[in-house]
Design a protein around this nucleic acid. Sequence first.
DNA 1: GAGTTTGAAACT
DNA 2: CAGTTTCAAACTC
Length: 703
Amino acid sequence: MDVVSPELNSLLPDEIMDTEAIVMEDVPASQPDGTAVQSESGDDVPIPMETDTPVVSENLSFCSDASSTEHTQALTTSTITDSMLSISSESQLPLTLSSASSSLLTLKPTLATSTATTKTTDSSASSSTQAVKQEGQKFLVRTIGKSGQPIVFQLPSTGSKPGVGQASGDAKSQAPQFKVVTIGGRTELKPVIGSTASQVPTPTPQVKTVQITNKTQVSSATPIKFIIANTVNSKGLTAQRSTNMQICENTVFCNLYHVILSFSLNTLSLLSLALFQNIKPLQSVAVGGVSGSQFKTIIPLATQPNVQQIQVPGSRFHYVRLVTATTGSSTGQTSGPSTSSIQPAKPMVVNTGAVRMSVPIVQAQTMKQVVRKPLTSTAQVVTTSHPQQRLIMPATPLPIQPNFTNLPPGTVFAPAPGGGNVGYAVVPAQYVTQFQQSPYVTLASSSGFPACSGIQSQARLPLNGLSTAETTSRPRKPCNCTKSQCLKLYCDCFANGEFCNNCNCNNCFNNLEHETERLKAIKTCLDRNPEAFKPKIGKGKDGESDRRHSKGCNCKRSGCLKNYCECYEAKIMCSSICKCIGCKNFEESPERKTLMHLADAAEVRVQQQTAAKTKLSSQISDLLMRTAPVISSGGGRLPYTFVTKEVLEATCECLIEQAKQAELSHQPQAQAERLILEEFGHCLMRIISSAGKAKTDCASINC
DNA sequence: GAGTTTGAAACT
DNA sequence: CAGTTTCAAACTC
Ligand SMILES: [Zn+2]
Ligand SMILES: [Zn+2]
Ligand SMILES: [Zn+2]
Ligand SMILES: [Zn+2]
Ligand SMILES: [Zn+2]
Ligand SMILES: [Zn+2]
């Protein structure tokens, strides 16, 4: 039984579904039965984000569980304040991991190159091991780490963390000059950004009094004094947002409860009975939807037998695969990432002859330094002067020369083995996810280098301003490009550094088959705007307070209260850098408040309805439990047994909820009545289903 | 679903 | 840099 139908969820616009904790906090009081409110805020583990100070890093320790034939690997993550990434592979399974930390990642071990023979006997293994060619073939893997030693990636300690205290690019960091800007009804101070030379964080003025001229359309030419207190948070306003939903007190529906209660039990029961006679006995409807798993979050941790990616719950990053292979010493049959059913259960102090790794291009804090740590001749950690991203890649010059720190998020350069002519595949974030099934040959042929080269597991940066849930769970909305070949920033897939997948685009070049063109397009975009693939929305640490659009919007007609506006779309308010006209997307905007109220209301409505349905279901199931013996003992009066006071009340709640909803959406009365009746039908069906289930159960017991 | 509106991206 | 065109998504009916 669907307690919460999928349709229900889709009823709401996104912004409602992603309501922030503030909204949620208001809710429980209005929950009719105290049903737990699902709130994402609770389990919001600090995740290293692309922004700001690398306050938190992750300690990942990976230990491939050799005893499992399924190749599942234990992954433990814990959040600590200092960063240490240790990897120990006890078998030659391909390990997948990455550090989602924002700290500089330093590879200590030295490199070696080795060959290994792999043997994949298991289809699932081969599908997940793109680095490995077909059965029995030799391949080269670049190795990191001395054989026989666990590889430890030591991240710099907190003390040496660069960029701590660096301002997040907010205007606050600028010298506190302001110019007066008046936009629509909003008078605003826009910081005058004179020269970009100084990025030195300027102490934030706590209170600044500026005299500006209000030249709003309201015609007031009176000078106003503005007190600008940067630290003032107007959360109070938000908190005031009422979620009181007792809005329909005064209508006909308010009497519904009594009306329905006045339904005699018999009437209801008769109605039920009539329907009950017709139901198929095997209509196996799960009674008591609460017992189902619809409220559980199923964490897809290591869902696939062969770990290619590890998805750490709560983390938006996919994790990078380390492919371990044997060194030359363990010649031949040490089985590499093979699936030979005999797993060496002994601790093999990392036979990590070969490790290839890539690191999610997370946004690190500003590090105005170039760190070049040549580990070997073939690989190094490169941290460019661009503060935000880093890659591990070969030292060989790139065939294309964009500032590779600005490549599309998740892009990984996969070095081809053998040094010399190194080819690169620029693979977007979702490559592994999107194309895990596709034959690896495709990549090899299209990118023109040996097939063994690719390890492209990669993380994806959070989408611009979108929530974690959206980023990680919700699949990207398919694009519909027709003219851009999905190689312009018009295409959201391309703009997010992803391949098109399940899109509706025509003439799409945003795929592996057109890697060349794609590369070229990426280069073009970067030439035009080096920041083209960086997230546009900075991510504030404390909720949304310092999130802002990097460029600001430029809206003219939407009032910045429609999804046309990038700020609004990202659920942030317009800021001083926006160049919008007639903006209504600022804190005190009454329009914005109205909108939020509506959103809140809708949110609460849905939750109440959900709660009501849950309650009904649980009561039915409860009833089922309690009355099962009675039924089996031979009573033929099922409907009477089931329509009890509790069920009746729960039904009423559902109906009232429906009534409220109808009224709130201003349905005409006839329509409202129809909706309520339909809901009543649904309720009845639930009751009947329960009864039917009970009956069949009893029947089967009796047989 | 077709048609319109919108503002970012691309282009000049 | 500004003005214009192109584009795909958001929105409306
Ligand atoms: Zn597209
Ligand atoms: Zn697409
Ligand atoms: Zn496409
Ligand atoms: Zn806007
Ligand atoms: Zn804006
Ligand atoms: Zn605006």
